[in-house]
Write a protein that binds this DNA or RNA. Structure first.
Length: 341
DNA sequence: GGTATTTGACCGAA
DNA sequence: TTCGGTCAAATACC
């Protein structure tokens, strides 16, 4: 969702401001412990509440600004995806062979486009197969393309791209609904408890996205390639060295950022494979943790790597979905689909 | 040998 | 002409 050179820059500034605000909050909390900074109870001194309120306002404003910026970016990108005829959307044919020219409208993206934010340990239960990777103009990292790997005819697609603003985040867009009879499988993993935390966008219209669920354990069969450095991997930013478990690869192996071998870090970049999504052939099988994609409504705390790491290690994974179809309507918690466990 | 990923080429839309 | 999305041969792994 690169918003373009300019947009990316502004976004970086906003994200930076959010981080600074968070840090300020921490500092003030230490300096004004008696004031009860951060305490909603209100028992604390009024000064603390006032500071807290101001910080909250700043945070909220920054989040809104970021959301607006990103929504705008999404709008500009959505256009091409949905410009073609719907019929050809999933019938994309062609390929290299001239004898079998692909039908027009191959690029059609009439399905609801949804951006999703996942955190550690959260994955959808579908199996995805990577079918391509492309360098995107103006984006620092390439975009990876995945299709449903469960059923050949399933039109579900997923695009994963590492965020320009924050390489530690992955932006995942889902297209089309799954037609394969493979509902999300219940997760037995105790640590995976999807929980919507951000509200922005509109009610989901995409069945596929609605079916996203955290996946507990990786399927053995899907791990076949585990251990093999993926060429898609790209260098992990220093900021990731904090120990977060953000997966950075794709094909098959999710690697915690902190534990990325040097060899992998220097390997060819693959944002996604990231996707958390990283995506591997089967997301459901990846253990990764991952994906932290800031959504337009992503809260300040969610933008902080330290916070993310904390959540990954201590708290339940957070799911955030953002339907970019209708940017005007606010979304409520009820709009988020809570994957069945 | 089977399956999944990689990657250059192809295609249509803008 | 450029660019994003997809295909499919080549390659890698189990």
């Amino acid at each position: 969702m690169a918003a373009g050179p300019g947009g990316a820059t502004v976004e970086r500034f906003i994200v930076g401001a959010q981080k600074s605000t968070n840090q300020l909050k921490v500092v003030l909390a230490k300096l004004l412990p008696a004031a009860g900074l951060g305490s909603r109870a209100g028992a604390a001194g009024s000064s603390g509440s006032a500071v807290d309120a101001l910080l909250s306002d700043i945070t909220d404003s920054l989040s809104r600004a970021l959301a607006s910026l990103r929504l705008g970016a999404l709008d500009t990108q959505r256009s091409p995806w949905q410009s073609s005829t719907a019929a050809a959307a999933t019938a994309a044919g062609g390929g290299r062979r001239r004898s079998a020219p692909r039908r027009s409208g191959q690029r059609v993206r009439t399905d609801a486009c949804r951006m999703i934010v996942l955190q550690s340990g959260v994955q959808d239960s579908y199996t995805w197969r990577k079918y391509g990777q492309k360098d995107i103009l103006g984006a620092r990292f390439p975009r990876s393309y995945f299709r449903c790997g469960r059923k050949p005819g399933c039109p579900a697609r997923k695009h994963v791209q590492q965020s320009d603003a924050d390489p530690s985040k992955l932006e995942i867009a889902y297209f089309a609904a799954h037609t394969c009879d493979d509902p999300p499988r219940p997760s037995s993993s105790p640590h995976i408890v999807p929980e919507p935390v951000s509200i922005s966008g509109t009610p989901q219209k995409n069945a596929a996205a609605a079916r996203l669920v955290p996946v507990a354990a990786a399927a053995p069969s899907a791990q076949r390639r585990t251990g093999q450095p993926s060429p898609l991997l790209h260098p992990v930013p220093d900021l990731m060295a904090g120990g977060s478990d953000v997966p950075i690869r794709t094909a098959g192996v999710l690697l915690p950022v902190a534990g990325v071998p040097a060899a992998l870090s220097s390997a060819q970049h693959d944002p996604v494979s990231a996707d958390d999504t990283t995506f591997t052939p089967s997301m459901g099988e990846e253990q990764a943790e991952l994906l932290f994609i800031p959504s337009p409504a992503c809260s300040q705390s969610e933008l902080l790597l330290t916070e993310v790491a904390k959540v990954e290690l201590q708290g339940p994974p957070v799911w955030m979905e953002h339907d970019v179809e209708d940017d005007d309507e606010p979304v409520t918690f009820s709009d988020f689909m809570v994957p069945e466990m």
